[in-house]
Design a protein around this nucleic acid. Structure first.
Length: 489
DNA sequence: AGGTCGAAAATCCACAGGTG
DNA sequence: CACCTGTGGATTTTCGACCT
């Protein structure tokens, strides 16, 4: 194996066929998330299907690009490039805007396809990309646009058409980052063996190479497999002689040194228990869980992050009331962002109705998302001083985040403490969703299908599925509540 | 794609003190 | 006076883990 050597290229091989070992802007996204993944992409690429949610994002990105293209076509004459050579020819001819131009620089080892190349009055070309993102201050974007600048080599800042309609310029300020990226990518290209990395649950579980890496982590009993243990902490522990889960499980708070991201006896104690739990599958209780008194109402919202305005729209505010059977599911639904305000008012009304029905209520939800969203809505509609809002967000808030007692009191044989992780586990809550494929990203996809569906029957069907999913979510938190009460209170 | 949270690291900045 | 160094404190960034 080894790096790509231009000189040894078969003459019949076109540039397009040999670009794998060149650095391309889209490598930046992977490079930021994981060095190993970046290496594998270059040396042992795997074809994989993006999930429905990423497909949705990708479709939106293409639609955004098409919208920008249409705009530019109104202003300029736009020509689509079909190859590297064609792009060069168009540049020579001085085409006003080149769409999907293809640039390559084998000396720098770079290749890139900027969405647009826009001719300036000086005759120089400026690269421009359409990005769904709302901010230009993202490493991946800065690197990508920075690569286009290098490929053009004229010093002009690159332009980005952002998802909210803003345009931004990226100039010399991104150079340092681009340097770091290129240097690191070149080193990865030359590397004979995959670099060693640590496990990160949030990154690895969505990685196409998970099946490749995971057995290795497990065989090594890599400590970073444990929930809450940072990769850097694992590195430092290994240096101190603790490099397997078994070793950590056999340690005590006093024999584990303080390391970055794992300091203090409390955190170290948790990590040790997490290691023991990983090996034994047992649940450890740190503290008695204390649950608030009152009439519990389970609460879960669904929202659409991909609205036209790009402000999140909560289209479903779901509740599970006593006696917590499936029929006790209640909700406020809105068909689209045009009814955003109605949905919010409907939610406030519902909550007030529950409050008058029961002497004291607890609105139980999982993780802080519900509370944060209520805060956002209060701000959006300037209702911070509304009596219901004051009550919801004030001192005696009925909102109760069930993740808190779980995180504070329990150590579970899991790598994630999300609602689904805990509820689906057969040895824990053991509650199964009726819709197997459901998940938070699934609901976003379904709602966007609902929005674009024109057949009323199909539309109703999609809505029912989403309602069923949301109902299962609140039923799940109810099951979690009972599980906590039975075992830990 | 967006966001929140908390811990910890990284960066920045004003200011003090020393040196040639 | 220009320049370097150290320090404490405030601010910003990063990380991993959640949510839609």
């Amino acid at each position: 194996m080894g790096g790509f050597i231009p000189g040894l290229l078969n003459k019949a091989m076109t540039i397009t066929q040999s670009t794998r070992m060149l650095i391309k802007p889209s490598d930046a996204v992977v490079w930021i998330s994981c060095q190993r993944r970046a290496w594998l992409d270059k040396h042992q690429p795997t074809a994989y299907e993006p999930d429905a949610f990423n497909q949705l994002l990708s479709d939106r990105g293409l639609a955004h690009e098409a919208a920008i293209l249409a705009k530019l076509e109104n202003q300029f004459s736009v020509v689509q490039a079909t190859s590297f050579e064609h792009t060069q020819a168009l540049i020579q001819q001085g085409a006003q805007v080149i769409y999907q131009g293809r640039l390559v620089d084998e000396n720098q080892g770079l290749v890139g396809y900027p969405d647009f190349l826009i001719r300036q009055e000086s005759g120089q070309y400026q690269s421009a990309d359409a990005k769904l993102s709302l901010s230009e201050n993202k490493k991946a974007i800065q690197i990508q646009l920075g690569i286009y600048r290098r490929l053009l080599g004229n010093g002009l800042p690159a332009m980005v058409f952002l998802g909210d309609g803003r345009t931004a310029l990226l100039g010399d300020e991104v150079e340092l980052l681009v340097d770091e990226f290129i240097t690191s990518m070149k080193a990865l290209l030359d590397l004979e063996q995959q670099p060693s990395v640590r496990y990160s649950h949030s990154k690895c579980r969505i990685c196409p190479y998970e099946a490749h890496c995971r057995p290795e982590f497990e065989m090594r009993e890599d400590i970073s497999l444990l929930y809450g243990v940072h990769g850097k902490a694992a590195d430092a522990l290994a240096e101190a002689g603790i490099s397997t889960i078994s070793q950590l499980a056999a340690s005590t708070v006093d024999t584990v040194p303080d390391v970055p991201y794992l300091k203090g006896s409390k955190r170290k104690y948790r990590a040790i228990l997490q290691a023991q739990s990983f090996l034994s599958g047992k649940v450890y209780s740190l503290d008695k869980t204390v649950l608030p008194e009152g009439t519990w109402i389970h609460f879960d919202i669904e929202d659409n992050p991909l609205t036209r305005s790009r402000e999140r729209h909560v289209y479903l505010w779901g509740f599970l009331l006593p006696t917590y059977a499936k029929d006790d599911f209640d909700y406020v639904w809105t068909d689209g962002e045009a009814n955003d305000y109605e949905g919010w008012l409907g939610f406030l009304q519902k909550v007030e109705a529950y409050r008058s029905l029961y002497p004291s209520i607890v609105l139980a939800h999982y993780s802080n998302h519900e509370k944060a969203t209520i805060r956002k809505y209060a701000e959006r509609y300037a209702m911070e001083n509304h009596t219901t809002v004051l009550w919801l967000l004030g001192q005696d808030s009925p909102l109760f985040d069930m993740q808190n007692p779980v995180l504070n009191c329990l150590v579970l044989p899991l790598q994630g403490y999300g609602l689904k992780d805990i509820c689906k586990h057969p040895d824990l809550v053991d509650f199964q969703w009726e819709n197997q494929e459901s998940g938070s990203q699934w609901s976003v996809v379904q709602f966007n299908r609902f929005l674009s569906e024109t057949n009323p029957r199909e539309k109703q069907k999609l809505k029912n599925e989403i309602l069923g999913y949301n109902r299962d979510d609140v039923v799940a938190t109810r099951h979690l509540e009972l599980w906590l009460r039975n075992l830990f209170c």
